[in-house]
């Protein structure tokens, strides 16, 4: 029987996080971009729970609850904004909103 180390879970978390970063950078659809940030949260959550297990305390799991809270708050606000923006320009293209161009 094989057993696992913390490093395994950290690798999974890192892969999820990196894929989230790539998705956030490449996709132009605002909704998918936010999905990708949620995916980064998933990577972080895996890391936190793994640390919780391997350190023998429950702080990591408590922090996942906070991550969930933030994700929920972010979803509520971000999606509200997305709907608002979509109704302004009839598009979800992130590049339609580039007022911060230098």
């Amino acid at each position: 029987m094989e057993y696992l180390t913390l490093n395994h879970y950290l690798l999974t978390g890192a892969i999820l996080f990196a894929l989230g970063v790539i998705g956030f950078a490449t996709r132009r659809n605002l909704i998918v971009m936010f999905l990708c940030t949620e995916m980064m949260f998933q990577g972080v959550a895996v890391t936190l729970v793994a640390f919780s297990k391997y350190h023998g305390n429950l702080d990591g799991q408590s922090f996942v609850i906070f991550v969930l809270t933030i994700a929920a708050a972010e979803a509520a606000l971000a999606l509200g904004l997305v709907v608002y923006l979509f109704r302004r320009k009839q598009t979800l293209d992130a590049e339609a909103w580039s007022a911060m161009k230098g």
Partner: peptide, 11 residues
């Protein structure tokens, strides 16, 4: 990297 030990998680 996986190692043998008494305690652990099924991989």
């Amino acid at each position: 990297l996986a190692y043998d030990a008494e305690q652990g998680t099924p991989s």
